[in-house]
Computed example of a mutant assay.
Amino acid sequence: MIGKLNHWKAAGLAAAMLFAVPAMAAECIAPADPGGGWDFTCREVGRILAEEGLVEGNVQVTNMPGGVGAVAYANVAGKRADDAALLVATSTVGITQIAQGKYPAGSDQMRWIAMLGADVGVIAVAKDSPYQSLDDLLSALKEDPASVVTSGSSGAGGWDHIRLLMLAEAAGIEDLSQIRWVQFDGGSPAVTQMMGGQVGLVSTDLGEIKGFVESGDIRILAVLSDEPVSAFPDLPTAKSQGYDITGYNWRGFYTGGEVSDEDYAAWVEKLKTLYDSEAWQETAKSSGLEPIWRGGEEFSAYVAEQEKQMAEISREIGIIQ
């Protein structure tokens, strides 16, 4: 028996040396029905975790829809806060819900592991628009916030709306509630209406309107990313124009708030290994995501700051009290 124990100890040590972090069984909760973005995140990341030998066996994917992620959030907080084998898929949409008080607790109830990629937000105008630059647009809005009809694929207080308002706030526009907003069922219908003159700009994800960019029918005034995007490296970022704003619709994961530092660090390392793999880079790009890494404490701080910004803007425009 002792010989067998020694054998397994040796095998475990060898595995640890081979994979900096030992593999373990894992489950990923997708807080939505099959087929959506959170389901995709769980299934694709789970597949690569298994293929790269970063977990033991296959990752079990559990769909837990309800409340745009609130049901899963409550379940983890109440029943699985210390479950080291658990990942939960989330995105900017989830943080928006948290900021607006639609989840049972704030972001500090969970441990935020990493973001692996994102749809990148853009501010677009028609090719014949009088606004030639982001400065032109924001100056017009600052002079008269109601002078430009703005639009996107989320309702008032949704992410397309909020990232535009973050830019407006950075430009010194004080009464954000005066900016007119129209919702359409997707970025493409919004662009079509913009090209017809019904609205003056569109705030949406670049992936949704990529075809219009390629055809030259619209002008991108700003990409809301840290760096130029790989597919369109010549498009200007808001940061390069003096506005320190990003607008990622990121895809990432959290785990329970009582998971140990050691287990949390192990997940961060596993996901960084996955992010660096050729399999994830190809999967992300083929799915229209820009591979972007933020992990561990950096990601936790980013989430906390996003929650704070979104809550402040939601309060300013009357979405929350």
Rank of each mutant, 00 (worst) to 15 (best):
R111M: 07
A50R: 07
A114W: 02
P130Q: 12
T62F: 03
A140Q: 14
E143L: 12
L137C: 06
K102L: 14
G78E: 11
V68N: 10
G106I: 12
P130A: 00
G117Q: 03
V122H: 05
S153D: 13
L87G: 02
A70F: 00
K142Y: 07
S91W: 04
N58C: 04
T62N: 07
R47K: 15
Q109C: 12
T150E: 02
C42E: 06
T96H: 00
V61K: 03
V59Y: 04
E52M: 08
D108A: 15
I113A: 04
T62H: 06
M115E: 14
M110G: 05
S154T: 15
L167K: 09
Y73L: 08
P65N: 10
G101D: 11
V55L: 13
D144L: 00
A114N: 09
G121E: 10
A168G: 06
S139V: 09
T90V: 01
I123E: 08
D135S: 13
L141E: 00
G157Y: 11
W112I: 05
D119H: 13
G117L: 06
A156Q: 07
A168C: 15
M166V: 09
A81H: 02
Q132H: 10
V59D: 07
R111I: 10
D128S: 13
G157K: 07
Q100S: 09
V93Q: 02
A140K: 14
V120H: 04
P104T: 15
E56V: 00
S153M: 10
D128N: 15
S129I: 11
A50D: 04
P65Y: 12
A50M: 04
V148K: 03
L165Q: 06
V55F: 06
P145T: 06
R47L: 11
D128Q: 14
G69W: 07
T150R: 01
K102R: 15
Q100H: 10
T150C: 15
L137P: 06
A168Q: 05
V71Q: 08
L116F: 02
N63H: 15
M64W: 12
W159Y: 12
D135Y: 01
Y73K: 00
A146S: 15
P65C: 10
A168F: 05
M64F: 14
L49D: 01
A105G: 08
Y73I: 04
G158I: 10
K79G: 02
V125A: 09
I98L: 10
P104C: 15
V55D: 02
G117T: 10
I123M: 14
G53C: 10
L134R: 08
G53T: 05
V122F: 04
F40G: 02
Q100I: 06
V148N: 01
A156D: 00
M166L: 15
S139A: 15
G78C: 02
I162R: 13
N58Y: 00
A84H: 11
W112A: 03
G53I: 08
L164R: 04
K127L: 04
E51P: 07
Q100V: 08
V148L: 08
A126D: 14
S151G: 09
G94E: 09
L167R: 09
K142H: 13
S91Y: 03
D82H: 07
A156S: 11
G66A: 11
T41I: 03
V68D: 12
A105M: 13
L116D: 02
Y131K: 07
M166H: 05
S133H: 07
A74M: 03
